[in-house]
Design a protein around this nucleic acid. Structure first.
Lengths: 236, 236
DNA sequence: GAGTGGTCTAGACCACTGT
DNA sequence: CAGTGGTCTAGACCACTCT
């Protein structure tokens, strides 16, 4: 564990345990330096991490303040772990609808930058939270990056499996969102009616060295799924 | 202009003019140091800015690579400028539907952390892009922070006005997204039918020192508005 | 003017990737 | 093993806020 990471975790822990609310002030830079017995730059680096994660905001000449948010039960659009691995996300589950090696369509080849000759895994799952249906998920995985999958893995977290078994972590991802009307088949899966509204997302997941390996389409239940996102202003 | 900012801009400019594609490699840290005649930390800071803005990704032991994205015509969920002020966003416009000082409801008071005695500005606008209707926007502004508005301003960018006239910049914001069915009145504004699908967003904008001053609800045209977002993995 | 966050430097050392 | 990005330090100096 790096020094700045442990400082960041420790400050985060303070915020949680003291249950600080939005706008409450943290110790100053110099105080944090002596408190953690480290250099100014390391503290700044730790604070940058917290700021990037929307936990604090810094005001020049004034101080460091807590940023609080996350209404409960909302889906955080800014994580790229699929869904799982948050504290309270134990209540999430997945039901495998189908699972097979298939020949990729042109669209998939384009997003995963692969040739039509390479087969890919196609996984269709129903995602649930507290037994309420969240969405239908259609995922395609590059077999060159993800050589093996089984239903056991698919019922839990794929990304968790990839991390522990292959040291493969998501580096970054892209999401595309649109709104539409449900097809008959998706309406059936979501126990809604045809032409009911839905949010459709297309996501591409890249490894840490920039290789796309997962292309997924999600169709969300318009009543059970709500989303949030936090933005910090930066100017290039 | 700070040194790291000008370095960041300069690298960004290189990417644009050379039209580098995703995955193309940039000069190494040491090369950039000599090229810009500055210290390692300053280069790192510049690269951090670019990384935060999803323009590059860095791979330890390997190099610095271009990250390219932005399909055209999509709404970037990660900006907090309302809409305007991108290069190609000149094509965006607004039509004022109504504009008045009103007494805030409880919901608004809560989000803007104000008392029900303080009047707030209520602005209702139709947002258009290339004369295609994007959304209906309902905004509430704290009069303590935004003391004056007029239709002239509202037809252009409010945030631009706040910046130039009051040195007021958005520090950060929150967005909440959900999907629903159109009411009759919103359907009329969007020239759609009642019960057609729509994306509804609630946004709270905070100044740089953490004061919420704008609470907005947007109802998007489900065919004309599409969205995207880029995520970089960070672990606290 | 005291206190706070932010920039910038030079340099030592570490950790990972590729060949 | 050479080259690359990443961590950490100590210290000088700058810019802003608050009262």
């Amino acid at each position: 564990m790096l020094k700045y990471q442990s400082v960041a975790q420790s400050i985060e822990h303070e915020i949680q345990t003291k249950d600080l609310t939005q706008g409450e002030r943290l110790p100053s830079l110099t105080e944090l330096m002596t408190q953690y017995n480290t250099s100014k730059s390391t503290i700044i680096k730790a604070l940058d991490v917290l700021e990037k994660n929307n936990r604090i905001f810094q005001v020049r000449g004034s101080g460091i303040f807590v940023r609080r948010n996350q209404r409960k039960g909302l889906i955080d659009l800014q994580t790229n772990r699929g869904f799982s691995s948050d504290m309270e996300d134990a209540r999430l589950s997945a039901k495998v609808l189908s699972f097979a090696k298939v020949t990729p369509t042109n669209e998939i080849c384009q997003h995963l930058r692969c040739s039509p000759d390479e087969p890919v895994f196609h996984v269709k799952r129903l995602r649930l939270k507290d037994n309420k249906i969240l969405c239908v998920e259609d995922s395609y995985y590059l077999t060159t990056v993800v050589p093996y999958l089984n239903t056991e893995i698919l019922e839990h977290s794929i990304f968790e499996y990839l991390k522990t078994s292959y040291q493969l972590q998501v580096g970054f991802s892209e999401k595309y969102l649109s709104v539409g009307k449900l097809s008959q088949s998706n309406a059936d899966y979501l126990t809604l009616s045809i032409d009911d509204p839905c949010l459709i997302t297309h996501e591409i997941f890249y490894s840490r060295n920039g290789v796309p390996f997962d292309y997924s389409t999600n169709t969300y239940h318009y009543l059970n799924a709500n989303f949030f996102l936090q933005i910090t202003n930066t100017t290039i």
